[in-house]
Design a protein around this nucleic acid. Structure first.
Lengths: 143, 143
DNA sequence: TAAATAATAAGAATTGTTCTAAATATTGGT
DNA sequence: ACCAATATTTAGAACAATTCTTATTATTTA
């Protein structure tokens, strides 16, 4: 899995802007996330990363995921107390988690509905992030 | 902190309905949550509970909080990877977390907006729970 | 190219939570 | 009220995800 020129520039720029260095490992982890757009845990990213870079360590995977999150290229997704998952979809979206199949899906949200949610906040409060997670049954698992 | 008759009946009924027993410890933990309606972590609940019941153990606190959640009287609230927090507010509401003050506030949501959110789901998907967490600055911390 | 700085690797440490097993409490049937 | 059956509590060990530590290696800057 090679990063296209476009994504490499995006990555280098984003890292530099946040005072971080572009390294082979960070590039590789980014390409792993772009390569299969499910919502892997750090362990899963580690397993996929090792396929092409056997010497990478789990600590480095965490480190890279943190660097990518800090640079704004990757989002961390949490469901209750489960391991953090990572995704490279940067559009405003929520997540749907089907406990039956274990599958996680992105749910696109309009600006409109985000604004509507923000309007529920008490005066003076400013939200710089909104996390929305649905729990339920997906189409396949639903009776 | 004594449970009112009303709340004791609510508790006993809810526990019985979910096949669980009413115990001194569960009553006490419930009263702790009703007594101060912030969003304490298990450790904080433990500290408060011990004030009146010094022999209670942390494992029991976790156990009671789990029993109360299972019975539907208490909600678990998670912010990213932080320790789970517990609250006895059962109305549909979101949470606002101010990282500056550390304060957590309930944000009431209308049925309308919940329905609107549900309507964003792909066909066939049913949500049996929606978690909404705002991150930002609250009125006092905002410039 | 050298010096300064940042990132990596490997494993130890930490944190919040769950598990285990023995002791205790609660419940339902007499 | 009493006994047996079952659930809960306690204390501490175990666990899983993540972070930290330190020496080594890579990247950047001058």
């Amino acid at each position: 899995m090679q990063l296209t020129q476009e994504y490499r520039e995006k990555l280098d720029g984003a890292l530099r802007r946040t005072g971080q260095r572009a390294t082979r490992q960070r590039e590789h982890i980014f390409s792993v996330l772009l390569g299969k757009r499910d919502h892997p845990t750090a362990d899963e990213v580690y397993a996929r990363a090792r396929a092409e870079m056997p010497s990478i360590s789990l600590a480095t995977v965490y480190n890279c995921l943190e660097a990518l999150s800090a640079s704004g290229l990757v989002k961390q997704v949490n469901f209750e107390r489960e391991p953090t998952r990572y995704c490279a979809n940067l559009t405003a979206h929520a997540h749907f988690y089907c406990k039956e199949s274990g599958e996680i899906q992105d749910v696109e949200l309009s600006e409109q509905i985000i604004d509507l949610l923000k309007s529920c906040l008490p005066a003076g409060h400013t939200a710089h992030r909104i996390d929305i997670a649905f729990d339920g049954k997906c189409g396949e698992c639903d009776d």
